[in-house]
Simulated scan of single mutants.
Amino acid sequence: MEMKIITDYLLQPSEAALWWLGQAGYILKSGGKIIVIDPYLSDSASGGVAGFSRAFAAPLLPESLNADVYIITHDHLDHLDPVTIRAYPRKTETWFIAPRLAAKKLPGLGVPEERILVVNAGESVTVDSVTVTGVFALPTGKDVIDTTGYLIEFSNGRTVYHTSDTQFHPLVLDAAPSKPDVMLVPINGKWKNTNAEEAVLFAKAVSPGYVMPNHYDLMPLNAENPEVFEWFCHHHRLLSKPVIPKHFKPFTWDI
């Protein structure tokens, strides 16, 4: 896939679109603005272990990535990818948003300090007409205690809630935003992350228009079958529409 496909992708004023990059990485577009979240475009997290190596090639070269806002949810290599960030060419033009500890890693990867915005849970910032609000997530390890989900709201009112990696807990449900257009939630169920059934119960509490599973596709030892997620959607009579996205294909929605 070429970034030009996204930059040239036409949307109506009230529409938004997203492209799934694999794992928990996305590109969002609406109102003429492009947002990237946790793009993992290398194999840096594999550590030489076959079971954690990429199951498919990265859809983009980091050098071709182009965004107005670059969001990082926490400092794990498949979310804050140093290879991708070092190679990203528009560091002086892009706003980088991350929680407090993850943000400290960015200057060492070549991101100018004046382009870094620290947004923790409960905080909001508006840049380039896009409002980004930090949402509480329960960290999956002591090494990422600042893990933060994010609610992205475009100028036309389209909203996306990226939960980040998180444990399933009543406080996470209570802190989550209500009725976003789209909810992006992990289903791998390993290393304390939400599993397929928990993701559905999470979505029931949030009531998004659409719910999309992630974090199940890229690494053989960290995988899940999305059909399990779909089964639990039916089992728990989820009113939100489940969408199993296709890699690098646009999903477009309106009001």
Rank of each mutant, 00 (worst) to 15 (best):
Pro62Glu: 07
Thr133Leu: 12
Trp20Gly: 14
Glu197Met: 06
Pro242Ser: 13
Val119Asn: 04
Arg90Gly: 05
Lys179Gln: 15
Pro250Ser: 05
Thr159Leu: 12
Leu11Gly: 01
Asp217Tyr: 10
Ala137Leu: 02
Ser129His: 15
Val111Met: 14
Ser164Glu: 04
Ala16Ile: 06
Glu153Ile: 02
Asp146Ala: 00
Ser44Pro: 02
Phe136Trp: 12
Gly108Gln: 08
Val118Pro: 05
Phe136Cys: 09
Glu2Ile: 03
Ala45Gly: 00
Phe96Asn: 02
Asp81His: 01
Asp128Met: 06
Lys33Cys: 11
Leu173Asp: 03
Gly25Tyr: 09
Ala55Gln: 12
Ser53Lys: 14
Thr94Gly: 03
His235Tyr: 13
Pro186Tyr: 12
Val135Cys: 04
Tyr216Ile: 09
Ser14Asp: 15
Ile187Lys: 12
Pro107Leu: 08
Tyr40Ala: 04
Ile5His: 03
Ala205Glu: 03
Ile255Asp: 07
Pro170Gln: 11
Tyr40Lys: 02
Val132Lys: 10
Thr159Gln: 15
Trp19Tyr: 08
Leu21Arg: 01
Ile116Met: 13
Pro213Arg: 08
Ala16Pro: 13
Gly141Thr: 11
Arg100His: 11
Val118Gln: 13
Tyr210Gln: 05
Arg100Gly: 13
Pro208Asp: 10
Ile244Thr: 14
Gly32Lys: 10
Ile255Pro: 06
Thr159His: 08
Leu109Ile: 00
Ala102Ile: 07
Glu114Met: 04
Lys179Leu: 11
Gly108Thr: 11
Leu80Tyr: 04
